[in-house]
Design a protein around this nucleic acid. Structure first.
Lengths: 155, 155
DNA sequence: AAAGATTGATGGATCAATCTTA
DNA sequence: TAAGATTGATCCATCAATCTTT
């Protein structure tokens, strides 16, 4: 049995896509205008900075960020070429590695935040009261929590 | 002056991205598994079907869908190659054209909906009560309406 | 010159296959 | 054989330049 959504539910889904698109596009535009890397680099650097000390395994990063393995592999290539991250062998499992953020990577993340942060406020935060933001967060939380435990994106 | 967002606002923004990503990924997965085209094809075909009779100018489609011009041009190429849409000259302005959906295009849109619809319900609708859906729709509406009138994505 | 639309070149995303170690 | 990760080939997205008509 495959139940179809009501028109209302469909409309709300369409709005979710559109709202995200509008805000995301304005953020990417600002980053580009400031000659900074795309948002995916920020997300990666942030995850790595939060894991400071340890660094992260590629597959951990992959799951956290909902990226396919091959996709992440090449993203890390680019970040490494620019000197923002380092790959280190992982002691204890010869298959694995640890990705760690460099000093230069932390600096770039901060420079990106100087553009990203204000644009979140301008394109997103400014349109919601604190109450509305809280309410939106709770509703989105329902969609995220209930999602059937992060499956891998690749077979 | 560039005010930074509160941690709460930032967290809600992150959730918006993640919730959309999760649902979108599961939809694209289902379409692929059913050997159907990607969601962008559905969106395009739907817009064209809604405009039935007239057809749409590429720039109208572009604005409606928040796509860059060159991007749309090649998307239409692919749709035309598969016989799902037709390009016609636009009488009255030699620069323009009209894109119209074909019978085969309508049929494909229906086939896609048979997969897309149930997955919207399953990955999205099922996690919200009607009240919650309504509330979410209203909040997202705030973000969309207030967005500074759809700018072009290309210079 | 500006609007509507396309194209060549390039970079990123994706699929399938591969390599290494467990 | 499976897990962790990479690679080659291909497709799509993007930038900049172009073409045509207004």
């Amino acid at each position: 049995m495959k139940p179809f959504p009501t028109k209302d539910v469909t409309r709300v889904w369409a709005r979710l896509v559109k709202a995200q698109q509008i805000v995301l596009a304005s953020i990417e535009q600002r980053l580009k205008a400031a000659k900074l890397p795309p948002l995916a680099w920020y997300d990666t650097l942030l995850e790595l900075e939060r894991a400071e000390g340890r660094g992260l395994r590629p597959f951990e990063l992959e799951r956290e960020m909902l990226l396919a393995q091959y996709n992440l592999s090449r993203l890390v290539d680019r970040l490494e070429e620019e000197g923002y991250v380092e790959r280190r062998p992982f002691e204890g499992d010869g298959r694995g590695q640890l990705i760690a953020i460099t000093v230069s990577g932390k600096s770039m993340r901060r420079r990106m935040w100087a553009v990203y942060g204000p644009e979140i406020q301008c394109a997103f935060g400014d349109h919601l009261t604190p109450r509305q933001a809280k309410s939106l967060g709770a509703l989105l939380g329902l969609l995220i929590e209930k999602s059937p435990g992060r499956r891998r994106l690749k077979t």
